[in-house]
Amino acid sequence: MTPAMASGVALQVLQSLLVVLVAPLVTGWVNICRAWLQNRSAPSIWLPYYTLAKLFHKDAVIANTASPLFRITPYVLFGCMWLAAGIVPVLVTDLPFAPAADIIALVGVFAVARVFGALAAMDTGTSFGGLGARREMMIGFLAEPAMLMTLFTAAFISDSTQLQTIVETLAHREFAIYPSLAFAAVAFLMVLLAENARIPVDNPTTHLELTMIHEAMILEYSARHLALIEWAVAIKLVAYMAIGFALFLPWGIAPAGDWAALPMAFAALGAKLALAGAGLAFLETLLAKMRIFLVTEFLSTAFLLGVLGMLIHFLVRG
């Protein structure tokens, strides 16, 4: 193994561990910010970790109607999200596993997770499970094309679907606001809210039967299975933020083989995550949850913005 490859693998492992371990912290940070903005006294930033530890210790309760699929799914979800977060360049661009999946395959990874989640929800044969699965798949089919359109805009600008190449191209251009990227950024933000079950599309804190989507799907899960799913949800949020950074804020990511830039990359990532988390909490405080069928309009707007961004790229070549 050459030294370059060894350093690549080391960085890959480092980044993969980092995103998994940091993910609950980001969730905790978003919760604190939201509590501050809503004039509540904030919980500890470590609360998500305590919750996970508590859940892992408990005995799992499984419905007697569940099939093996129900028990496999949390691991599949966790694995998919870990993979996704591992191959998006957040710290360094030199990731040996990243060429295995480009942005289209990344969307595919999220789709795998969604399909398994929905199947597990239908597995126990309860009314809420089916309801959640149906709504989740509806959001999925609306959000996935919108996501692809925003990604395609970036792909057209950098003439590549490799996230590494995209980051390197976008980070080294002269600083100018690309109108096509601006449209894509708005569309991406809308998709991020929808895909991560945040307000205004879904409410991560609700347990009100008729309004929940994601929570309805995982209603039957408990203990370690629930812990894995909650953790996967946290990683998913970080992965989406990381994709956003890679496309729209690609500065500070260490180029290949440059260990000296790594501390700077850590600092940049920390700052970006803190900002993004605060921004998310701000948005969630500002907006109200919308009716389920308004989500259609919300996400088709995102789709149209993505398409517009792409067309603008072709019109003005920028």
Binding site: F56, H57, D59, A60, V61, I62, A63, N64, T65, A66, T124, G125, T126, S127, F128, G129, E209, L219, E220, R224
Partner: peptide, 13 residues
Amino acid sequence: YHGRIRVADPWDC
């Protein structure tokens, strides 16, 4: 952790 599992009726709220 452990692999303990209990089987029960579905909860469904």
